[in-house]
Simulated scan of single mutants.
Amino acid sequence: MKTKSGLFIPVLLAALFLGACGGKTDENQNMAEDGTAPSGENSAVGHGVEDGADQEADDPEVGFGMTDGTIEEAENVPEEEKAAILDTFAQYMETFNNQDPDGYTSLLVEGKDGFDIDEEKKAMQELFAAYDVERSAENETIVSYKDGEAQLFSNLTTTMTSKASKEARSEKGRQVTVFKKAGDAWKVKEIYYIGDSA
Rank of each mutant, 00 (worst) to 15 (best):
M1Q: 03
K2Q: 10
T3P: 01
G6K: 00
I9A: 03
I9L: 04
I9Q: 01
P10C: 06
L16T: 08
L18G: 11
L18D: 11
G19P: 03
C21E: 14
G22M: 02
G23T: 04
D34T: 07
D34K: 09
G40M: 10
G46W: 04
H47M: 10
E50Y: 12
D51E: 07
D59K: 06
E61V: 15
V62F: 00
V62Y: 00
F64I: 06
G65M: 11
T67N: 11
T67R: 09
T67K: 13
D68W: 04
D68R: 07
D68I: 00
T70W: 00
I71R: 05
E75I: 09
N76I: 01
N76T: 01
K82R: 15
T88K: 00
F89N: 15
A90N: 08
E94L: 03
T95P: 01
F96V: 02
N97H: 07
N98C: 07
N98K: 12
S106P: 08
S106H: 05
G111S: 08
D113H: 12
D113V: 05
F115K: 12
D116E: 10
D118K: 14
K122M: 06
K122A: 13
E126S: 10
E126N: 10
A130T: 12
D132L: 06
R135P: 02
R135H: 05
S136A: 10
S136K: 13
S136T: 15
E138Q: 15
N139A: 11
G148W: 03
N155H: 14
N155P: 00
N155R: 14
L156W: 09
T158K: 00
T158N: 08
T159L: 05
T159Q: 09
M160Y: 02
S162T: 06
S162K: 05
A164D: 15
S165H: 05
E167W: 08
A168K: 04
R169V: 12
S170A: 14
G173F: 01
R174K: 15
R174H: 14
R174C: 07
Q175R: 09
F179G: 09
F179A: 05
A185S: 14
A185Q: 11
K189W: 00
K189Y: 01
I191T: 13
Y192C: 05
Y193R: 06
I194E: 14
I194S: 13
S197H: 11
